[in-house]
Structure formats: C-alpha cells, structure tokens
Write a protein that binds this DNA or RNA. Structure first.
Lengths: 194, 194
DNA sequence: CTTGCAACATACCGAGCGGTTGGTTATGAT
DNA sequence: ATCATAACCAACCGCTCGGTATGTTGCAAG
C-alpha cells in the first residue's frame, strides 16, 4: 500500500472510531488530525469535505463490516438458529465501549438520516440490502416455517427490535437489559418454526 | 398565570419543539430567543444553563406527555388490546413531522444518554417507570396469559421494538415500514394470551 | 415617594468549528 | 535532469456557539 493510501486508510479508521464514539456532528476534524498526526491540508487533500469523509467511512468501513457480520450469521444450514446464536454471542462479547456507544450504523441513522439526504439514502440502501438477505435466508427453510408469515415484515421486525435493544442498553448502560430483549427476540424467532 | 410564568412556559414549549426537531446539541439558544421574541437575559433569568433548560423540557414537557399517553393505553380492561389499538392508532395519526423527527424521548435517549449523566438518569428513571406500568397492567390479566412468561422481559421487548420501529421509519421516511413492524408487534402481543 | 428586587434587554467574550489559502516537499514519468 | 503533480503543512478566516457583565424597566411593599 502506498504512503498516500496508507494515510487515507488511517484517516478513515480514526474517523470511524471518532464518529462511533461521538457521532458525526460532534466529531471534530482537529481531533482526527491530532490522532493521525497529519495536517488539515492532508485531510482535505484526500476528502473534499467533512461530510464526504463521513460518506467514505460509512461505505468503506461501516457497511462492509456490518453486512459481513450478518452474512456470517445467515449463511448457515438453519438461519433461525444462526440468528439466535449470532444475537446471544453479541451479548457475550459485547465490550464496554460497545454498550456505551451502541451500533455505529444505528447511531448514524438516528443522528443523520433526517438531516442529510446523502446519509439517509446510504442507510436506506443498506437496510434494504440487509432485509433482503434475511428474507432470502428464511425462504430457504420456508417448509419448516409456520404458514402465512409475512417474511419481509418479520425481517424488519427483527432488525427494529435489535436496534431498539441496542438503544435501550446504551441509555441504561446495562448489558442485562439487552440480554433480556435478545432472549425474548430469540423466543420469537424460534416460534417462527412449525 | 403571571407574565413571568407565561414567559417560562413559552420558552419550554419552543425549546421542546426545537429539541424535538434538531436534537439537544444542535438546538441553538438564539433560535429559541428569536421564536420567543425575548432576549438572552430573559432566558438566563429563568434557566441557569442550556442543559438545565434541557432537563426542564424533559421533566415538564416530555415525561408527562409520554407517560400519560401510555397510561391511557394501559388503563383499560384488556391492556393487550389496549396496547394494540394504541400502536395502530399511532400509525394512523402519525403526522409527517413525527415520521421525520421520531419520538422526542427516543431521540434524546440516543443523543444524550451516553454523553450526559443528568439526561441518562432521567431517561433511565422514566424507562423503569414505564416498564413497571406495563408489567402491572399485564399482571392484572395474568390468568389470561400464557404460563412461564417473563413479564418484565416482555415489557422491555415491546418498548425496544417500538423504539426500533420509530427509528426505522425515521430513516426511511416511510410510514409503511413502521406499520409493518407494528403489525408484527401486535401479532406478538396478542400471542401472549392463551 | 422611594427603595428593592424580579424581570427583562444589550453588548460583548473566548473558544471551537469547518473550510481556504498559499506555500513546501516528495515522487514518478519523460 | 527536469518538471508537473501528488502529497502534505501552517496560518488564517468567518461564523456561531454558550455564557457573562452590565444596564434598564416596572411593580409592589414600606
């Protein structure tokens, strides 16, 4: 990797961390510059504005990390159990910072979706992608599922609940609350089967 | 109501609206001053700081509005149906601004809970209050419910899902998504019964 | 009539923000 | 060796922010 590309990646990584911790608006460019030990000129050489940097973080850091994570949970023989073990393992390996800071994508969604159209469309596209993945996975075992299920609706329900659980644990700083909601969510998911 | 009290209430109302629209940090005091047609001295006569104003909005505007709303849904003969009609009526009367801005308490929770301890504790206390109300309501019809339900867990699950649904519709600007999650939530709630 | 305080108004402050400008250094093709 | 350009730096700009210091008005008690 060239030096320039290295610099760019460094900026993206640090910016992703800062945005995760403090949100997009509250993220200060000067903090990123200090952490990267570069000048403002260097940053504006690689990115035309703060919001373009934000888009890049979203597309190049958050989105792939997020989709890969879900894909690994869904690409198993029984996606129902895949999701359940995925969720419960989240509660186990959830670090303290993750409890406090929440899901970076959920945070960005809350903060920026109704403020900036660029973010909103990117978030929306990713949500639809994720929803389709879940629906596809569930359709594969359609014979094992109850009749009359609206799979897309079910999928959105699952994602919404997971986001809500993250927010809940974030505000309460309480892993147990998250665990409880997840436990109930797993009950719901398993009840999808016949 | 005295003139001074009138001024105070006016500040609170306008601030509540601004915070709902733009979040706490992005809410500018000067905008509030303009809308209220008062000076900065007037505001700082009634409130010692921006954050104290925020606390007052939370306690005197958001909290009572919120709890009353839930209480009216729970204080009926069958709280299960009460909640379902409450949720579905939300989807109907949801104004455009509410879709875009989301639930003010949910927003504040997302934005401030992990930044300011004062907000966090207030949010936490309200969440516990709400959860207790739901649990109490459900316990009243315990005989009609399935055995082995963890009611507190169920209650947190419901609230988490509702919040997640709000966030989802906010980012997508799509009432239908909200409606779908709510429909699935009602299925879940009704399935609590025997 | 005056004195005191609540209820405001006006003007200003320092800090931090995103962004720009005008330069300097490193690199790679010719 | 030259030279354009990529890559980077330091200084500065305009602006808005929350907050403060000081001044003014009006009413109400003594």
């Amino acid at each position: 990797m060239s030096d320039a590309e290295q610099t760019r990646q460094n900026i993206l990584t640090v910016a992703a961390d800062e945005i995760h911790q403090h949100g997009f608006k509250a993220t200060s460019l000067s903090v990123i510059l200090n952490r990267c030990e570069i000048s403002k000129g260097a940053l504006y050489h690689h990115f035309t504005s703060k919001i373009e940097l934000g888009y890049a973080v979203f597309e190049e850091i958050y989105t792939p990390m997020f989709l890969d994570l879900w894909q690994s949970a869904l690409a198993v023989e029984d996606p129902v159990e895949g999701l359940c073990t995925f969720f419960t393992s989240m509660t186990d390996q959830m670090s303290c910072s993750e409890v406090v800071c929440g899901c970076p994508l959920n945070n960005l969604c809350e903060e920026m979706a109704n403020v900036d159209e660029g973010f909103r469309l990117r978030i929306l596209s990713m949500q639809e992608q994720l929803n389709q993945s879940i629906v596809d996975a569930l359709e594969k075992i359609n014979d094992d599922l109850r009749d009359g299920l609206a799979l897309s609706q079910v999928s959105y329900f699952i994602v919404a609940t997971l986001n809500g659980a993250t927010t809940l644990s974030k505000s309460s700083r309480n892993k147990e609350l998250f665990q409880q909601v997840i436990a109930e969510l797993c009950l719901y998911i398993r009840a999808l089967k016949k």
